[in-house]
Design a protein around this nucleic acid. Structure first.
Lengths: 76, 76
DNA sequence: ATTATTTATACCATATAGGGTATAATACTT
DNA sequence: AAGTATTATACCCTATATGGTATAAATAAT
């Protein structure tokens, strides 16, 4: 799971449109779009502004780690 | 544990200086410094360039989660 | 099929992140 | 203490991320 799909997930679960999410997070609509399209050169603080809405924040993870989707479709 | 101290940790354990880390990561020295000083408006891809050296990458974490420091001074 | 809603693409403008470098301050070593 | 290595601060410059807006494409609803 990468960041972009993580956000899309959270957003659709919350039933928000991109404009709504942008507004609630206090970022531009453009930003939300680039975020959901996997742009890598985003500013960390802006990403966090969005994640905070869902109770998340960016942090260092071991490179292989299967992200934050606890007890769900676990391989073993 | 926040990102800046995480990096400082990893760096000192690796016995690298800031210039050495900058060079190995392919980022400017300035960047390493701002990173270690907790600047929040960093670019995600650059942060990842550095983290990759240590086998980490940025990803969404639940906001309270105690980061990546597995089995160490665990509360319970 | 039409219309309405949502998302994607393309452009312009501005603020600023990042590189570089030079100097200052701190931390080690002897 | 003096000298060396490391880190911090301050400046200039360029590239670019972000916001805004306008249009196009896609999706959903009727």
């Amino acid at each position: 799971m990468n960041l972009s799909t993580f956000i899309k997930q959270k957003r659709s679960v919350s039933g928000l449109t991109q404009p709504e999410l942008a507004e609630k997070a206090g970022v531009g609509l453009r930003f939300i779009r680039e975020l959901e399209q996997g742009k890598e050169t985003l500013r960390l603080d802006k990403v966090n502004q969005v994640l905070n809405l869902f109770g998340y924040e960016m942090g260092p993870l071991k490179s292989d780690q299967k992200t934050a989707n606890h007890r769900k479709d676990a391989k073993s």
